[in-house]
Computed example of a mutant assay.
Amino acid sequence: MAVSPSSSAQQARQALANRLAELCRDAGLTGRDIARLCSWHPSKSSRIMNARTPPSADDIRAWCRACGSEDQTEDLLASLRTAEGMWVGWRRMERAGLKQAQEARLPLFERTRRFRAYSSWFVPGLIQTYGYTEAVLRAVQRRRVEVDDVADAVAVRMERQRVLYKGDRRFAFLVEESVLRNGLGGAEVQEEQLRHLLTVGSLPSVSLGVVPTRTERSRMPVEGFWIFDTAQVNVELVSGYLTLTQPGEVAAYADTFRELADMAVYGAKARALITSVIQTLR
């Protein structure tokens, strides 16, 4: 189980450790007893019960057998998967290809009604063009994914964009001005993407803000993140994908979004900024 700085992930690990410790106590065993019955080093069971060492699936199966609680195995394995899912390295998430990683996120997008997205790297996926998405995913595939299913992954992301036009949903997108100038995919792809931003930004359900490049600012650029309603935040880091569900963590990202939004330009000013970048591409 990968370790992340998230208190959501840590709380999930601690909850699993507490349940394993409870099974041990209910069986009248000590940590040393568990280690002996499982043929482990004596300190391993203590580390697991104190959430210092995450258990593997095989560890949980052995623990339940030692406690005579094999009926608890599947439930505990589900808890393990939940804790692991809060922090997922890119290589693990994308080991079967990019299409599967894109499909896994679709249910979250379909059940969300209020979206907030901030990006300091790329245009957010929901408002990307086909060519821009292809350039993004091709760069990802070349860097870290052995399976080449970029075309299928692009199709999944394009299909996901239907949420922009269905149901009573609200969208707030914030991008740094540098995102407009990142050169991804070349001038033709960039111009198409910027013109698409002008179109999407005019939708009644969409708020599109651009944070201008300034010599002085109250909030520096941060990692890209999505806020789904008030229930969950997903953060894309260099090393992996972080899921946050603790109210305090969600609130912290909501506050950050609000601060960045206060620095952004909208409407005519945003369109003028985007148009000026289009003109430089020519």
Rank of each mutant, 00 (worst) to 15 (best):
P5L: 07
P5F: 06
S6M: 02
Q10W: 09
A12T: 08
A12L: 13
A12N: 05
A15F: 00
A17K: 14
R19Y: 03
R19S: 15
E22P: 02
E22I: 04
L23N: 13
L23I: 04
R25H: 12
D26T: 08
A27E: 03
T30N: 03
T30K: 07
G31A: 04
G31P: 03
D33K: 11
A35T: 11
R36S: 09
C38V: 07
H41K: 09
S43I: 12
S43D: 15
S46M: 02
R47L: 15
M49P: 01
M49K: 13
A51R: 08
A51G: 09
T53C: 03
P54I: 06
P54H: 10
I60K: 08
I60L: 04
A62H: 03
A62R: 15
R65G: 07
A66R: 01
C67K: 03
C67I: 00
S69K: 15
E70F: 08
L76R: 11
L77M: 14
L80S: 05
L80W: 05
L80E: 05
L80H: 12
R81H: 06
R81I: 05
E84S: 13
W87Y: 13
W90V: 01
M93Q: 11
R95T: 10
A96D: 15
A96F: 03
L98P: 06
K99P: 01
Q102C: 00
E103A: 04
E103W: 06
A104M: 15
R105G: 07
P107C: 11
P107L: 06
E110W: 03
R111A: 03
R113A: 09
F115R: 01
P124M: 05
P124A: 06
I127C: 07
I127K: 05
Y132K: 12
V136Q: 04
L137Q: 07
V140Q: 11
Q141P: 09
R144H: 09
E146R: 15
E146K: 13
D149P: 01
V150K: 08
V150S: 02
A151D: 15
V154W: 02
V154P: 11
V154F: 04
V154T: 10
A155W: 02
V156R: 08
M158G: 11
R160I: 05
R160P: 08
Y165R: 12
D168M: 10
R170M: 04
F171A: 02
F173R: 02
L174H: 10
E176P: 12
E177P: 01
S178H: 09
V179P: 02
N182T: 03
G183K: 05
L184C: 00
V189R: 09
E192G: 14
Q193W: 01
L197S: 12
L197I: 12
V200K: 13
G201A: 06
S202I: 00
L203I: 10
P204K: 04
L208D: 05
G209M: 13
T213A: 03
R214V: 12
T215M: 07
S218Y: 02
M220I: 00
P221H: 09
G224Q: 13
T230L: 03
N234H: 14
V235I: 15
V238L: 08
Y241W: 15
L242Q: 15
Q246D: 14
P247E: 01
A252M: 11
Y253L: 10
Y253G: 04
D255M: 05
T256M: 13
R258C: 04
E259I: 04
A261P: 00
D262L: 04
V265P: 01
A270F: 00
R271K: 13
A272E: 14
I274S: 11
T275R: 08
T275E: 10
V277E: 12
I278N: 00
